[in-house]
Design a protein around this nucleic acid. Structure first.
Lengths: 340, 340
DNA sequence: TTGTATGCGTTATCAT
DNA sequence: ATGATAACGCATACAA
């Protein structure tokens, strides 16, 4: 459709062989400075742009990174994508985006699609439904560089970037305890996700470290539907054994909690203290402002892109070794956990 | 890197000619059902995936749409991208993302990059710095389908999707007036942006429709730096002629207003009523909850993708005619404009 | 219905 | 320092 001019046409215009022009444009040492100058200026004049597909076909690489995320772009994934995009653009890489919508089948389809080489590398965060990992295994077996972030699968021996979910959840729970909470509920999404497990473990250990008994009914499994979650939480808040502290393992559950609280007579933080994993920039203008554990989303994105590009550029020097790299989250205390 | 098997190898395995295999996989009418079945099953067995670059080179199309956005992915652009992604994935298209970071030079660079045919079509929202549109003109001249959304440039004769900025700003201002505001300030970003102009016009006309005098000092030009904006707004709120109503033309200026108000003794909505263009899902849990004009971001994304894909699929039937398509925004009244 | 040959636009190998 | 030629993997015009 676009149809600029080709290398051959440019060469004809210059009365040079295509190979010479190619070398000149690629700044080969075999070409004289004089012709290089001529070629480059003519290329600019005629607005020549190398056909990326011919080049990709020839060189067997695309200068493209694919990012697969599991849900609608929320503040966390938006920041990760921004972080990846920043580095990619800087390094002349292109960015493909795919959304699995928490659907394993879509994830498999997309992963299979990428097996054809459209992208040189992949950064992904898996679906909460991802039980079977054979599609991911295949990706890795084929030698396509893959990195996981946030929602990782340890079965695949590659580098993964996460935040310190365990420690953060531990710290968050301890913070609630320090602020006087005696009865803390964890709001979480699933049991399968790596991050859920780690956050649950952090919560569990914090409770146990007080010598308290761990009550399984104090972990509330929520869904992906907001209204349903609000109902669940409201029910929880109206129950006889209602919590005086809540740790929301993802942002949207904190928002659901605000909505649920609105439906009751309870007040944050006097009746209920709330802390949440969250990347929203407006935690500070919620009322009361929300104490958060902020994941270093932008940094995670940056690191993913940096490592992948290094691996692509210098495959011998950089290996995607099987390790989990942890970038710490940051606890920001605000009004929602204040002692009044 | 990835290196699956090629068509030729697949053909060899099947003891068929590559062309036959190609046709079978493309479901050509010339091929018998029997061989089609054989070919397809073998292709699956050997995990054959057509090389996208060879195909793109041959067919001169990439099944790829590029999206260019001007800033970090915020709730509006996230929703637009989600909307585009949804349709693209459904139709087997790939999505490239580029961020110009409000920088004209980057915009030019990216646009020039896309001149080489890497994407079949482009959906974009321009930079607030975009004064010179020659790079956009070139894109269009080359016949590359381009659509603008939200931040459009009317100089380029193509289809643009926006929301009813003028009417919404008018309605929003009228709403403030109905709620008793006598002194309304418009917070805006620039004077160059299409959307800013329209929203300003809507505000102006609403003020004038009351028979009031239009006071230029009641329009506050903000920056892209949050802290600076908070200071500007705080100053405004402490001035002798402070407003009793604010219309924020973009979300982040509403957030800045919340922060500025926090620093004063004023209260929303009793001392100051606030309404904002915004796509945040949490307008309802701000305190007080925020009256918003919600842009149909997801729909805008859907429409962009749909039209582009139609144009690509049936170029004769669908033209990107020079028109502006308006999808209305929705006013949702919440506490921040309540009469107490 | 299937096979053969060509070309898409590059880059790399081998000449000159 | 430059030119001729082949090859990347695919789809298609042409041949059988």
């Amino acid at each position: 459709m676009a149809g600029g001019i080709s290398l051959k046409e440019l060469a004809a215009e210059l009365k040079l062989a295509p190979s010479t022009v190619s070398r000149a444009l690629n700044d080969s040492y075999e070409i004289s400075e004089a012709t290089k100058k001529k070629v480059i200026s003519m290329a600019e004049k005629l607005n020549y742009h190398a056909n990326p597909f011919a080049r990709s076909l020839r060189e067997n690489k695309s200068k493209t990174i694919a990012v697969i995320i599991p849900e609608r772009i929320n503040s966390f994934f938006a920041q990760v994508v921004d972080g990846i995009e920043e580095i990619a653009q800087e390094q002349g890489y292109h960015l493909l985006i795919y959304n699995t919508h928490e659907d394993l089948e879509r994830e498999q389809k997309i992963v299979n699609l990428l097996l054809n080489g459209r992208a040189d590398a992949i950064a992904m965060s898996v679906t909460s439904q991802t039980s079977d990992v054979s599609h991911l295994q295949k990706l890795h077996d084929r030698g396509l560089p893959v990195i996981f972030f946030d929602r990782i699968r340890s079965e695949i021996p590659t580098t993964k970037f996460i935040t310190n979910d365990y420690e953060s959840a531990f710290e968050a729970t301890k913070h609630l305890i320090q602020q006087g909470c005696k009865n803390i509920t964890l709001l979480t999404l699933g049991k399968d996700l790596s991050i859920s497990k780690e956050r649950q473990r952090g919560y569990n250990d914090a409770i146990k470290s007080e010598g308290w008994e761990l009550d399984p009914s104090m972990t509330l499994y929520c869904s992906h539907e907001e209204e349903r979650n609000v109902e669940l939480i409201e029910e929880l808040l109206l129950s006889s054994n209602r919590p005086d502290g809540i740790l929301a393992s993802v942002e949207k559950l904190a928002f659901a909690t605000y909505l649920a609280v609105k439906r009751t007579k309870l007040r944050i933080p006097s009746d209920l203290k709330l802390i949440s994993f969250s990347n929203t920039s407006i935690a500070g203008i919620l009322n009361p402002s929300l104490t958060t554990i902020t994941q270093p989303a932008m940094s995670i994105g940056n690191e993913c892109a940096n490592l992948l590009i290094k691996k692509l550029t210098k495959p011998k020097q950089y290996e995607l070794i099987d390790q989990v790299i942890t970038i710490p989250s940051k606890l920001t205390i605000r009004e929602s956990t204040l002692v009044e």
